[in-house]
Simulated scan of single mutants.
Amino acid sequence: MDRVVRAWVDGWVLSRGAAPPDVEAWGCTIDMGADGHVTRHVFGALGDDVDGAAVRKVAGAVTGEGVWLKVFRHPAVVGPWLGDQWWVDPEPGYLMTLPLEQERGPLPAVPDGYRLRAWSRGGLHRVMVAAPDGSWAARGQLAPTGATAVADQITTSPAHRRKGLGGLVMRTLQRTALEEGAETCVLAATPAGRGLYASLGWTVSAALTSAKSTGPRGGDSRT
């Protein structure tokens, strides 16, 4: 398995409280046990190294709903490998990394009226930003796993975007990763988040296809 993929898997499992991954020749299987997200199969190769035959074989063995595939290649390539029971997100995600030696200097200031809170529990580090009226404005969390750390669930409220809050959350988490002894941060970015992370020095390792089994009858199930 590619080392960046394995780093992401290990941190994501910790971040989401999932079962330890079962390693396979093609990647790994992770049990989540949630409605709509029972299990996910993560393929271990990147880009042109992804084995289409392996993706077809694993996907073809899935019969139930709520099983996800994560394949590190563009949806335009992966989609034709899958049958009618699969909903494929047409927009790619992105596996991204950041070398932490550049995470130096002062952190951004918290905007006037906003409040930042950071805490750690159960091996996770969390950051929350509250708006001036006390409502939620932004959040994120970090799962350190040794030399790498995974940033996850980075979100900014639509009402509070374009105020630097996403960057504030990320820089706080990146600094925490550095203090924890990590050398590299890893995350899976949405198309919307890619620009923010790129502005902070993150680079793309591969496109990411997300596909969900909708069962024998198919249907659109975007959860």
Rank of each mutant, 00 (worst) to 15 (best):
G93F: 02
Y94E: 10
Y94A: 06
L95N: 10
M96T: 03
T97A: 15
P99L: 13
E103R: 09
E103D: 11
R104Y: 02
R104K: 08
V110H: 08
P111Y: 04
Y114G: 07
Y114C: 08
Y114L: 05
R117L: 15
A118Y: 00
H125A: 06
R126I: 03
R126D: 00
V129A: 00
V129L: 06
A131W: 08
A131N: 10
P132E: 12
G134I: 11
A137K: 09
A138C: 05
A138P: 09
G140P: 00
L142C: 05
L142H: 00
A143W: 04
T145A: 14
G146V: 05
V150Y: 00
Q153F: 14
Q153E: 12
Q153D: 15
Q153R: 14
T155C: 11
P158E: 03
P158M: 01
A159S: 13
G167W: 14
V169T: 08
T172I: 11
L173H: 05
L173G: 05
T176F: 08
L178F: 06
L178Q: 03
E180T: 09
G181E: 05
T184Q: 13
V186S: 05
A188C: 01
A192V: 12
G193P: 00
G193C: 08
G193L: 04
A198V: 07
A198M: 04
A198C: 09
S199A: 15
S199L: 04
